[in-house]
């Protein structure tokens, strides 16, 4: 499965969150739409220390998500970072189910199924297609991505293609707007959806929308 859906990260997807505020965050993997974790819940921690006066260069921290004993595991389970650092979650195992990450500290929270602030979702596109994407949380955000097949007939074509794989396309989201709203990439390339500030949005292929019956 290679669906565009920030609520379920799989191989080829990443979720990254910048931690600007100091604090101790506990987090876990959830189904999107569940209530926020209670203060006592969450198996994993991120301890964010205040930035020092010398303001060192922000760092990125990698968390590998995998399955162990039938549960999703964050590896490493506990991080100690400085304010301004970025934590990026991803998986390299195709058998890992789609996951969403959410957590909170005393004063702050983050949720990959409701991107709000200084957050990033990236997706590598695996098939040629035209995708109209939207926000499943109903905030009106939308965009379009055209995925084309690269030319790979010759060795030279293949070399060019491999070079292009190292470049990413960035779509910036502010409020209810995506900029640019339409992008064109090749199969294998990655688009980064960077949320500066929004009301908790998802980046989801509209074809994945499921009509959920409402009890009368």
């Amino acid at each position: 499965m290679n669906s565009l859906d920030s609520r379920f990260c799989r191989v080829g997807d990443t979720f990254a969150q910048k931690f600007s505020q100091a604090g101790r965050y506990i987090y876990d993997f959830n189904l999107p739409g569940l209530d926020q974790l209670g203060k006592e819940n969450g198996r994993f921690t991120i301890s964010v220390a205040k930035a020092g006066d010398n303001k060192p260069e922000p760092k990125q921290h990698f968390v590998n998500v995998r399955v162990a004993e039938k549960k999703l595991i964050a590896d490493p389970p506990n991080l100690e970072i400085a304010a301004g650092d970025v934590v990026l979650w991803s998986t390299n195992d195709q058998s890992t189910p789609g996951f969403s990450v959410s957590g909170h500290s005393e004063k702050d929270s983050f949720n990959s199924a409701a991107l709000a602030r200084e957050a990033l979702y990236s997706h590598a596109f695996g098939s040629p297609e035209e995708i109209e994407w939207g926000d499943m949380n109903g905030h009106g955000l939308s965009g379009k991505i055209s995925v084309k097949m690269p030319a790979t007939k010759t060795a030279s074509d293949m070399d060019s293609f491999k070079e292009l794989l190292t470049t990413g396309t960035v779509v910036t989201i502010r409020g209810g707007k995506a900029e640019p709203a339409q992008v064109s990439v090749l199969v294998g390339q990655t688009v980064f959806f960077a949320v500066e500030k929004a009301e908790g949005v998802t980046i989801t292929d509209r074809r994945l929308k499921v009509e959920i019956p409402v009890l009368q």
């Binding site: 191989v11 080829g12 990443t14 910048k18 990125q60 970025v86 200084e118 590598a124 960077a194």
Partner: peptide, 9 residues
């Protein structure tokens, strides 16, 4: 956000 790198997959 700053510089962000995806892992090699």
């Amino acid at each position: 956000i700053g510089n962000v790198c995806t892992p090699r997959i």
